[in-house]
Design a protein around this nucleic acid. Structure first.
Lengths: 212, 212
DNA sequence: CGATGTATTGACCATGGTCAAGAGTAGTGG
DNA sequence: CCACTACTCTTGACCATGGTCAATACATCG
């Protein structure tokens, strides 16, 4: 409701170029594998667009457990936070480039920024739904479809720069359970593994229907 | 980052009165127990401030499972949604009153609205953390503290207008597990039940430390 | 006072977690 | 080019948490 202008308009995807207009422009930054992009406790106020590579955003609970809040690939935006201080930290999963933008309050009025915030909220909500209602194999299937849908190969291929442990901490499972779920999906002929870090989706619909 | 002005300013809580300035004013609406306030599929574009009573907001998955995304008490705001159409539906858990406001795009620039959005995002994130990292007793304990913290009796009393099943669907558990967790918390002398729908918190810190 | 909905409790079971051993895989240095 | 090392991933055996099904107890409301 808040933001009804630009989204649902196919092709209104945010390229870094489009963003340049009207918002403080930051430079492009390169990060090596495992580099910290920002830390828990850092001052918030920047958002990041991934130009290439993949970024993992996580949060550590008081009890020391980790929740991976998201993985971000080329073209995607991360770094939205609500307080003055960051609650999450971001790391490059592989050699990656980000374009960084400083935001201040008034930028919320910018429909492009609002649209990003909108998408971010929607993805969190999707994540909630998965953690709140799905079992292990449904979670892993939904995760793989989510990755594949984002690009590269018409939604049938999923490259996984993250480890099984990362996926587990994203889905509220253990790495063993993730590994077994992937195995079961192979046995069910719904996916094919190419090495450990790439997956071909053989039946996208069946993967999503696992829950039903 | 986005919104750094008004929050963390104690006492900047939004009363309906404060909201009246600068935003389209809607009227007050009363709802009887179990009344639907809005439905999945409705046009979004309004937010609601609870004046009295309690509202439950839920979402049904494709598989027919329910996630209760939140409970809202007097003074709290619900109804933020990201698309043109509502994904969630809201119901009064008891006789309740809401003050309704129509929002359009420009209202995001209003710091009060932005602040609400900020708080909403933060609460979703908290929910994510709970669903992603906590076990049943930790979830129930955190839930009770969350309810009690919101008002009435200095954070030691929690009134529960929602059923065990509602709590279960909020926490990703079953109603039996919620019931058993509450029982265990009583045995641990961390809470006292007053009937089934009211809880006295005896040791707030211990309740939150259950995870550690 | 029954009748209906909600909560508790018990017995049993399944899913997923834990612990541990092996199998891949990639990077490093001889 | 081939060990050697250090990860990561897979797989197995076992266990614990929480889910399922069912009976009973409480409440609330006519």
């Amino acid at each position: 409701m808040l933001i009804q202008k630009d989204f649902r308009n196919p092709g209104s995807g945010f390229t870094a170029k489009a963003l340049l207009e009207g918002v403080n422009l930051g430079g492009t930054v390169r990060h090596r594998e495992k580099d910290l992009i920002y830390a828990q406790g850092d001052e918030a106020g920047e958002i990041f667009i991934v130009e290439f590579g993949c970024v993992r955003v996580s949060r550590i609970t008081l009890e020391g457990r980790r929740l991976v809040t998201g993985f971000y690939f080329a073209g995607e935006v991360f770094g939205f936070e609500t307080g003055a201080e960051r609650q999450c930290y971001a790391e490059a999963l592989e050699y990656s480039g980000t374009r960084n933008f400083h935001l201040d309050d008034k930028d919320l009025a910018n429909p492009q920024i609002a649209d990003m915030l909108y998408r971010h909220l929607e993805s969190i909500h999707q994540h909630l739904l998965i953690l709140g209602t799905q079992n292990s194999i449904e979670r892993v299937a939904a995760f793989l479809v989510g990755i594949a849908d984002r690009r590269e190969g018409g939604g049938t291929k999923a490259r996984l720069p993250m480890s099984r442990g990362d996926i587990a901490d994203h889905l509220g499972l253990t790495l063993e359970t993730v590994s077994r779920a992937i195995h079961r999906l192979q046995v069910l002929k719904l996916i094919t593994l190419v090495g450990a870090r790439e997956v071909i989706l053989l039946d996208r619909d069946a993967l999503l229907d696992l829950g039903a």
